[in-house]
Design a protein around this nucleic acid. Structure first.
Lengths: 370, 370
DNA sequence: TCAATAAATGACACCGGTTTCCTAATGGGG
DNA sequence: CCCCATTAGGAAACCGGTGTCATTTATTGA
């Protein structure tokens, strides 16, 4: 009975005293190494398991105890070791971003969106630029995942459209989310951006302005987005009674230089188009340069529309009418999707996720002359 | 003696046999979890310590044993757990990249350079975009380092020029390397890019072309690079007998819009400058737009020079004479420096490291008319 | 008053590596 | 033939957390 009383009483006193003790010790307490969970447990006179419960927000902790432990954690600046947590949880709290996209702004925007979601969930982001043409491409990606034991990977187009890469990720048992213009995978693994909407709006815009001789610069056929933009644009024009003649279509490579080449072909042909829709802003910039070189005035003699709303769209003069692709939202959605699947430890999340692109009208699109 | 013989002999047979056994087992051997060092040790009939020695290239392992273990590692696809290694080594093999630079291309280039060095050393890169103006800036940075226990951090300007941030990193005991236009820190912690060289070349170029009425758009004074570019440019002009009059200097914010504003001021003033040197390409693009708006022909009536050699320099028409800042090399050097310090576990590396910027002449710079 | 139950906490094994310390076998010199 | 240095390899503790299960104490119902 005496023993019981002691056992019952001591912890109370012990804990109550701990507040004082620690408060006093805090000034002089200096560790030559980062504090660990054991230090916290010792100072709080509890077991490390209880500290662990506090860290992990377990409901089975007395409020008083929790307050004491949190106070000590605060005072000594304890931060749980991610390595130890990772080892015990079998998780790394790390997401990977795989990209081979040459558009730097797109990548940075995606990164920001992904990180916005990561921060809320306590994840960090590891980046992996790569090159699909490299013979080490698949092996590099594999090592990337394994080397830090990534919990999940987000893949950006065009790499996201590589079936071998997806196979590698699947074999590794690594969760992934792919970004693409079309749904290539089960809903849980995809975030799609609807380029059809934006391309259709452009068609409507140009038709509404009165353009009939319209040139189109398509993207490279290996990009799914190129097909989407093309088909939607052609279809929407047709519904406005305008047929895009084959000789008014050129296929570019989403690069500035290819935009110049395609524009040169289109603009030296009769009848010369009164408007050109380039499948991305880079190529649209190539059209600008070519038009200026040929002495064609923009927008008086030529309306130009791009796609992406990259920074260059507003740097050009006149500013470029284009389609805004909300890259940051895209990144955020992908990360959220991935994190939900990782956290729930389930393959659910079968709802389709995506964003819609919308046209932004600026100065480069006006009615045709005469 | 018999026992001894057995003890001596068995391992031999054991190991020799292991090759066969494993070779046969490999086909049917399926684990429902990733293989661990224990699996390798068991299959190789050695202790896990010996496997550890092989992994870490210890010289105290028999060649035969090493070959057997490597064979098994290969066959079962064993990859050491980064969490476990991290826990034991007290290292994360993770580098951080802190940036608040609005220039996406610069960031992506830095990332690529950093990763080139990381790959060789077995490190991965975690990114952290931030905002110096946010009240959480310092705390976010601190958590960023702690959350994954980063081995080192690379800080890109202008964040790199924030002394409080550096203090936080130092307090955390986190190694860091700063990029900046000037040496703000001990040599071990810096990689500098010499903007003076490029700016001086521009001065020489413009003077050589015969320009005398030269306008200058400076960067924001909180950027060290802005000072470097300005001082060097002014100094070099002076050494060519040209004095930059105060009314020919405007201070921009390294943004497109500020370039427009400054250009408007410079170009509506008498005498109008025959050449404008903008401290970065973004602002130079603003000058282009303003000139076009005012009906000033480039380069006939106005020579323009930028700085950075960002993608926009070649997208503009005529293409922009500018100064190339080798961002990728910068990133690589910073990462190499950091990795050396981490690996050697010493504060050495007192040699200064840096890159030099060089002018790239394009179409926007010609002699003045008349 | 006495189980039965729930709440709060602790003891101990474990995650997958590394380090420390120790043993056994081998080879060479006296 | 013995001793010792050297090489190869193993046992156990450890890194810093988490899981499982047991234990203690307080509360409730019969």
């Amino acid at each position: 009975m005496t023993q019981d009383a002691q056992r019952r009483g001591r912890p109370r006193r012990g804990r109550a005293a701990a507040i004082q003790t620690v408060a006093m010790e805090a000034v002089t307490w200096t560790l030559d190494r980062p504090p660990t969970i054991n230090d916290v447990a010792r100072l709080a006179h509890v077991s490390k398991k209880t500290v662990s419960r506090v860290i992990n927000q377990s409901p089975f902790v007395n409020e008083e105890t929790r307050a004491i432990i949190n106070g000590i954690i605060e005072q000594i600046g304890y931060v749980p070791s991610p390595q130890a947590r990772g080892l015990a949880f079998q998780r790394s709290f790390l997401l990977g971003l795989v990209y081979d996209n040459p558009n730097a702004q797109f990548i940075v925007n995606i990164q920001e969106g992904v990180l916005a979601a990561c921060r809320l969930a306590g994840f960090e982001l590891v980046v992996h630029p790569c090159d699909q043409k490299s013979p080490h491409f698949l092996n590099d990606a594999k090592q990337f995942v394994q080397r830090q034991n990534l919990d999940g990977v987000i893949v950006v187009p065009p790499a996201s459209e590589n079936p071998q890469l997806v196979e590698v990720l699947r074999d590794l048992g690594c969760r992934y989310v792919r970004l693409s213009a079309v749904s290539l995978d089960e809903a849980a693994n995809m975030v799609v951006y609807n380029d059809r909407q934006g391309a259709a709006e452009v068609a409507e815009h140009l038709a509404g302005l009165g353009h009939r001789d319209i040139g189109f610069i398509a993207g490279p056929s290996r990009h799914r987005s190129a097909h989407e933009r093309r088909e939607s644009f052609v279809g929407a024009l047709k519904s406005h009674g305008i047929t895009l003649r084959p000789e008014m279509v050129e296929e570019g490579a989403y690069t500035f230089e290819s935009g110049e080449v395609c524009a040169t072909r289109l603009l030296t042909r009769e009848p010369r188009p009164t408007a050109i829709f380039a499948s991305n802003d880079e190529m649209a910039a190539g059209v600008y340069k070519t038009a200026q070189r040929l002495g064609i005035s923009i927008p008086r003699d030529l309306t130009i529309v791009g796609f992406d709303d990259s920074p260059i769209a507003t740097r050009l003069w006149p500013s470029l009418t284009t389609v805004r692709l909300p890259a940051k939202d895209l990144g955020r959605l992908a990360a959220e999707k991935l994190i939900v699947r990782i956290s729930s430890d389930e393959e659910e999340g079968h709802t389709a996720t995506g964003v819609v692109s919308r046209m932004v009208v600026r100065e480069s699109s006006v009615p045709p002359r005469g």
